[in-house]
Amino acid sequence: MARVNATPRRRGAARTDELLEVTLELAVEVGYAGLSIEAVARRAGVGKHTIYRRWPSKAALLLDALSRVWTADLNYRGTGDVRADLREQFLRSAPALATTPIGPVYRAVIAEAQSDEALRATLHEMFLANVEQSTLDRITRAQQAGELVPDVDLTFAAEVLCGALYYRGLLSTRPIDEAAVDSLLDMFMAAYGA
């Protein structure tokens, strides 16, 4: 007589969510260098092919897991006051860079990306480009509403806004606190405010 599993096998979205959760747990325990598709498969109780059907590489798997955790923090509120919206979003998302699972795992990925061009490209495509685009979209709407100077390309401004926070949160020992965010926004508004 065939044995019936007490827990039915998970498929589709539920299996994907489980694999992403296991990936983050392992990444926190062993870091990026110690993470492997095999280890994720073992912990999740699946074959490697189950993972490779969804993600082409360890980097894509881990960055997808990170983006699932952080996606909500990338969305700006739309109050009609660009400075207030930038400030609220930066202060809301900043703690993620300092806490588990995002902070330590993301720092490890950035370190590895310095010597791995494929990982660097994946990191930019899956994460950094989205963060920059979200910020660019918000400040472009502010420009169209007359809050910021017209006829100026804001692409570099979006990179600077995001880059300053990433530098402070990921590469320095200084916090992303209210004073840091306010100083950054003061500079931005002095340069681009209407």
Rank of each mutant, 00 (worst) to 15 (best):
P150K: 00
S67Q: 15
N130M: 05
T173W: 02
V82R: 05
R77S: 05
P95Y: 04
V30Q: 13
H124E: 07
A121I: 01
A27Y: 07
I37G: 08
R53M: 03
K48W: 02
A157F: 13
A157T: 13
Q143W: 06
G12C: 01
I102H: 12
Y192R: 12
A98E: 14
A60L: 01
V181L: 10
Q133W: 04
R87P: 05
D151I: 05
Y32I: 08
L119M: 12
S67R: 11
Y52C: 06
H49E: 07
V4N: 13
D73A: 08
D137M: 02
A39F: 03
C162N: 13
G80V: 04
L170E: 07
L119R: 07
S36N: 11
E21F: 02
L97S: 12
D151C: 07
G47K: 14
T16R: 15
A60G: 07
L119H: 03
D73F: 09
L161D: 05
S115N: 15
T100P: 06
D64A: 08
K58P: 06
S115K: 15
I139K: 00
R42G: 06
Y192I: 14
N5L: 14
A190Q: 03
A33D: 14
L119Q: 03
D186G: 09
V181W: 10
M126Q: 15
Y32M: 08
M126P: 00
I110E: 09
T79K: 09
T155E: 10
V181C: 14
E159G: 00
G146H: 05
V46P: 04
E117Y: 05
P150V: 02
A6C: 00
A118S: 12
H124I: 11
W70P: 00
K48E: 06
G103N: 10
S115H: 15
L62Y: 01
L184W: 07
L154Q: 00
L63F: 00
Y76K: 09
V82Q: 02
A14R: 15
L171I: 01
A113F: 12
L154M: 06
I139Y: 06
P104E: 03
A27Q: 01
A2K: 08
G34I: 03
G163C: 09
L97K: 06
A13F: 05
R53Q: 05
A39W: 11
T100Q: 13
A129M: 04
L74A: 03
L35I: 02
S172E: 08
A98R: 13
P101T: 14
I110N: 12
V181K: 10
D151G: 09
K48L: 01
Q114E: 10
A180T: 02
G80I: 00
R83V: 10
L20M: 08
E88T: 12
R168A: 13
N130V: 02
A65R: 10
Y32D: 04
G34H: 09
